[in-house]
Simulated scan of single mutants.
Amino acid sequence: MEIKQLEVFLAVMSAGSITAAARLLDRSQPQVTRLIQELEASIGFPLFERNGPRITPTAKAILFHTDAERFLTGIGRLKERAETIYKEEMAPFEVAAIPAFAGGIVPLAIAEMPESLLPRNVHLRSISAEAAVQSVLSRTADFCVASLPIEHSGLEVHGLFQSPCVAAVASDDPLAAKATISMSDLADRCLITMANPFRLRRRVNQALEAVGVKPSRIVDTNASLNAVRLASAGFGIAIVEPATAYGVEMKNAEIRPLDLDIPFLFGIFSAASRPLAAGVEELIQLIIRISAARMPGFVAHDPGHIERVADVTFGADQPGQEH
């Protein structure tokens, strides 16, 4: 198995055809075909089903693609790191964050970084909480910002935080005239919220059950930005976390507090016993300061109480230092 074979495989997966991959790589079609065949012979299974000029990835190719992409990305980062060592430059920042933060607050924090602490290369990945934690544990990310629950002995906790969820509605929705949106306002309306049943969605479901409210329809998504945009189009009322609501500017969307506290819980984590560069530490502190400034009801919890904080449910009053 050679790197050039993996590069061709990723190009075909990305472009969707041998012809397009050849153009992308500035190679001939026969070269691309030959390298794919050599890779298939090396790994022992077919990567594409061929039907005339059309190709379709096999199920095994789809599974293989994730690891191949991760490997080549790592090779690229290794070359980049070698260059920074040679030039005696600062190491790149590797940041993993859930979409709620990768789309708003983390970029705001990066933009405020002092030039003297900012390296030439910064890598920000928007991924799930589970994947973000694994990135830290595998040392492919310096730190991550992720929603709770998270429990792992290999993590150092740089902060645990809480802020109430909010509602997003279209600017021309009658509810936009209200200072606070009540849970009862969701009755017979379309609710737009998150999909993951083990994180924020669980607390939203608990809140709906507690007040006996049944929306007419529920639309879920894996990113709050999608939910807010649906709400801004007048499709329904979104219940989202405050990082997206107050970290990203939205057109035709109004953000309102809810009459019931549905807590959004998140933390910042790095690998245990891994020293962080001064610039990385500064970026973490900027993320915390911007979050505290933008999120109403922001609370910082004791980092040593991660299990107790992760169990916070809607309407709960937990001890913490308010900012």
Rank of each mutant, 00 (worst) to 15 (best):
H65T: 15
H65S: 15
H65F: 02
H65A: 15
H65Q: 15
H65M: 15
T66C: 00
T66Q: 08
T66F: 03
T66A: 04
T66I: 05
D67K: 06
D67H: 10
D67A: 09
D67T: 10
D67M: 02
D67V: 01
D67I: 01
D67S: 10
A68K: 03
A68F: 09
A68P: 02
E69Y: 13
E69T: 05
E69K: 10
E69L: 13
E69A: 14
R70Y: 03
R70T: 09
F71Y: 14
F71N: 01
F71R: 04
F71C: 00
F71T: 03
F71P: 01
F71Q: 03
F71G: 00
L72W: 11
L72H: 14
T73G: 12
T73S: 11
T73N: 12
T73D: 09
T73Q: 11
G74S: 12
I75A: 08
I75H: 04
I75Y: 00
I75P: 04
I75V: 14
I75S: 03
I75C: 10
G76K: 02
G76C: 05
G76S: 13
G76Y: 00
G76L: 06
R77A: 06
R77G: 00
R77D: 15
R77K: 08
R77M: 12
R77W: 08
R77E: 15
L78E: 14
L78K: 10
L78C: 08
L78F: 09
L78G: 09
L78Q: 14
L78Y: 09
K79Q: 09
K79H: 08
E80I: 01
E80G: 13
E80S: 13
E80F: 05
E80M: 13
E80H: 09
E80R: 11
R81L: 12
R81P: 04
R81A: 12
R81M: 12
R81K: 10
R81H: 09
R81N: 10
A82P: 09
A82R: 10
E83C: 02
E83N: 09
E83P: 02
E83S: 09
E83L: 11
T84D: 15
T84A: 08
T84W: 01
T84E: 15
T84M: 07
T84R: 02
T84H: 07
I85S: 11
I85Y: 08
I85L: 13
I85F: 02
I85E: 15
I85H: 11
Y86M: 07
Y86L: 06
Y86R: 13
Y86A: 09
Y86V: 07
Y86I: 05
Y86E: 06
Y86T: 09
K87A: 15
K87C: 10
K87H: 13
E88F: 08
E88C: 02
E88P: 01
E88A: 08
E88T: 07
E88I: 05
E89Q: 13
E89N: 07
E89H: 03
E89K: 11
E89V: 00
E89A: 07
E89Y: 01
M90T: 04
M90A: 13
M90D: 11
M90S: 12
A91C: 02
A91S: 11
A91R: 08
A91V: 01
A91Q: 09
A91K: 07
A91F: 03
P92E: 06
P92F: 04
P92H: 06
P92R: 04
F93S: 06
F93C: 07
F93P: 05
F93Q: 04
E94T: 06
E94M: 14
E94F: 15
E94K: 13
E94Q: 13
E94V: 00
